[in-house]
Amino acid sequence: MESGYHIVVCGSLVPDPLQTLEPDVGPKGPALKNEMVLPSVLDPWAAHALYEAAHLAKEYAGSKVWLVSVGPKQRLQQLMMTVAQKAPFSFVPVDGSASGFCDPFETATALANAIGAIPDLDRSRLLLFGGYASASRDAGVTLQVVGEMLGITEVFLAVDSLSVSENGEISLLERVEGGNYLFSECDCPPLVVGWATGHLPEPPNNPQIGMANMRSIMPALQKAPQVQVGAEGVSFAKVELPQQQRTTRIVKDVPVEQIAGEIVAWIRG
């Protein structure tokens, strides 16, 4: 009997979080200004999901990890240079827009179609992973819709911990209001897990893993299907940078007592 999990991680590129971003509203709708010039990274939440997937796969023999990404092919290729040394996975690229302005249903459709086309994917062992948030659209919607499209309704969102008991029962901690966790138990896969940060550090770069991954990544990229991902039905009235420039009063060379007094008065005020 086959054992282990089939873990599909959904995630794509986002601008490196340190970059300065500006919208650019053109005839085709909004986009990022100079999008081609911006360096990009794997979405931080999806990256956590990938590390958790790799960790789980290592613990349960027979497991496999796929990373499914919708993004411009060339940018995905570059992204793989920074991701493929982190964890062993099979790459399933879909050549389409990774813009935050795309509708999550359209991205979800592209992802679900790509997942549906993965040969040998055993849905009874499927853990559908991704981030519960993202640094681009940040709607927190895509993963659940992919789950619906694949017929999975056991969904866990903002998960920081997933553990498996001896009888195969899966326990999950989801972040809920007030700094608390919702503790749930799920009998078995398939299930959808939208990861928060988890507890695993970023794995070191492992050149061997990279080389092994890359042998299948490049052929996969060459065969990546092209899809149109947009925001049909959505009309943007405006997209702009927030104009929240404040007049900052800088207090310096003032005794600590005076500063503390001012802060206390402000807190109480």
Binding site: V37, T82, Q85, N205, P207, P219
Partner: peptide
Amino acid sequence: MSIGQFMQWVSNQVSSSGMVQIWPGT
């Protein structure tokens, strides 16, 4: 040119051949 953008363009040309692997962050 911008050396960053030029090298990005070159890396795309080179990597898409699948013949060589480039690993930043290493």
